[in-house]
């Protein structure tokens, strides 16, 4: 399956070491509940939703989210994170069909 479009956003864009910043992860995902019917065929559309999102910063798990089908289509997940040195933020999601995908953002505190 082609890679799903995804994005990590950090606010503010420029930050210093030790600062607490807002981190958002978003991904193009249908978040099908399995309870919706196809308008043409009248068949139930199979469930396909994100079940887990893990935020990993320099190899350490910062936040784990257990996700259910009631999150919106193309979901957005926002939490905070304390900047602790330069490195890499990885966000890994898993969905109900077993798909796993990783999005990476470089972390470069200034000063």
């Amino acid at each position: 399956m082609a890679k799903r479009k995804s994005l990590i956003k950090i606010k503010p864009k420029s930050f210093t070491d030790g600062e607490v910043v807002k981190v958002s992860f978003m991904v193009m995902h249908p978040m099908e509940t399995g309870m919706r019917k196809d308008k043409k065929t009248k068949e139930l559309i199979p469930a396909e939703y994100i079940t887990k999102v893990v935020f990993e910063y320099n190899g350490k798990v910062i936040t784990t989210m257990k996700v259910w089908e009631s999150l919106s289509v193309n979901p957005v997940f926002t939490t905070y994170m304390k900047i602790d040195g330069a490195g890499v933020l990885k966000v890994i999601f898993t969905d109900s069909k077993g798909e796993v995908q990783e999005t990476i953002e470089k972390i470069k505190p200034k000063g």
Binding site: K5, L7, K9, S24, M26, N74
Partner: peptide, 12 residues
């Protein structure tokens, strides 16, 4: 608007 899913599509 701060986290608009369309940001992913404009990136594409």
């Amino acid at each position: 608007l701060e986290n608009n899913p369309a940001d992913m599509l404009l990136a594409h």
